[in-house]
Design a protein around this nucleic acid. Structure first.
Lengths: 249, 249
DNA sequence: TTTAAGTTTGCAATAAATTGCAATTAAGTC
DNA sequence: GACTTAATTGCAATTTATTGCAAACTTAAA
């Protein structure tokens, strides 16, 4: 096994179970504890996890690393993405948020579609860079090294220069009374701005994000016009959102 | 099996599984590890994957490739980059332009260096995304699909929000009397803005760019303070620039 | 077809990085 | 304070990279 592979696996493992011991990793990856110790040093130097005595823990308030989310639940995310795709029409100006669901959506946009995309997500740009007719505008700002997006004042200012027909955001947590929340303060501000500057907001959410809440408030659930999930629209768990006047797909 | 075929297969494999070992590729493609190693070197020089000890890994979701332009002269560019590196000091705010020389420079920035980088180049972000202490700010704008940078009004406005200690630009063409020129109108404007907003400008140029000119004017040669090339500073071809008051390295 | 120039490939020798081990030092626990 | 566990350090063994070189192979032109 090559070193980078091991580092990835350690990261993935830590982001799943939050804390892990040297001995566990040593046996499961089949290398000595010294090596694991050195690996953890490398990862903690990059700020991707926190080294503690005897092992490592995930960085508490910092969102999980994009690479770890990348392969998680990909099938569900594609279902959500393909449903959301129907709302995108030729000629529109569209805001695309970060996140793996949105990336999956970007991958599905037909090659002959003429749209203007404004995004703060590097993976989305990476996908659309090959798109022949999409006009892509990147909302700059400070690099968020874990989510592969930009955040902060500059990003917000960039989005404020546009009026979008459609805003597609990825949901971190959504709750009937607690509203839309996320794990990072600045990310919350960016999402709020995106929704403000768009005519219609569509939230992409897999069922596991529903009825959960995080620390930072984005806005009430009524800020979104449509929720797209990976289940049937008549699923009873969605009734509470329908009652709030939100369309479900 | 023909070489190009092998390169394709390596690329395809890496993009599927994210990381591969030399031995695996060696057995599956039925050539020696040396050959695979050389193949990986070629692909990594083109920026299509990342060579690591024992194999290769796919680059991050941030685009990292200049597929359009074939990369040559990587050795020369690394010479230029390593010379330019000496001018970067801890604590500075630095503008980084697009181009492969600048990308090579970004790769050489030590992991413990605390700097703020403002760039409009996706490949540069891709490199610095792994950097633990660099604060990276991306100057957004319209995506230039050929150069993997952003250009246009938004980009210029973004750079105008910063005052940099140092501006490192890649040279397209430089000529004693015709000045700095490039092949694209909007790119020229961005470069001009970057130089305006920085205290000191360093131009990275291989010798083949010297004494040539393109269609779009950026500014006089005296706009740059230092030229870094891949040859000795006392090369007689550089005298004319020295006479203009430019420092040569 | 044959020759000649240029590539590509595998091999060997050397250089460099990674890894595991053992001894020492430091940190936590009772 | 004694005991246990973990971290650090130096060192040796192993693995991987790099370099030079010669053989095999391509390509293009004679």
């Amino acid at each position: 096994m090559i070193k980078d592979e091991r580092l990835e696996q350690i990261l993935e493992h830590v982001s799943r179970v939050r804390s892990v011991s040297l001995t566990d990793l040593s046996t499961s990856l089949n290398v000595s504890e010294d090596t694991i110790r050195r690996d953890i040093k490398i990862l903690s130097d990059k700020g991707l996890l926190k080294a503690v005595r005897g092992g490592a823990v995930a960085h508490s308030p910092i969102p999980h690393h994009y690479r770890a989310r990348e392969k998680h639940d990909m099938a569900q995310k594609r279902i959500v993405a393909s449903k959301a795709l129907h709302f995108i029409k030729d000629g529109q100006v569209i805001f695309l948020d970060g996140g793996t669901s949105i990336q999956a959506l970007a991958e599905l946009i037909p090659a002959d579609m003429k749209i203007t995309v404004v995004t703060h997500s590097f993976p989305v740009v990476s996908v659309l860079e090959d798109h022949p007719t999409a006009d892509v505008i990147f909302a700059g700002g400070r690099l968020c090294k874990t989510a592969f997006t930009t955040i902060g004042y500059e990003t917000i200012k960039a989005f404020k220069n546009f009026r979008a027909d459609l805003c597609l955001i990825s949901v971190c947590s959504i709750h009937p009374s607690m509203g839309l929340t996320t794990v990072d303060h600045e990310e919350a501000q960016v999402k709020r701005t995106m929704m403000e500057m768009a005519g219609q907001t569509i939230a992409l959410s897999t069922m596991d994000k529903l009825n959960t809440a995080e620390s930072y408030y984005i806005g009430p659930v009524t800020d979104v016009d449509i929720i797209v999930t990976d289940t049937e629209p008549n699923d009873e768990r969605l009734n509470v959102y329908k009652q709030a006047g939100i369309t479900i797909f």
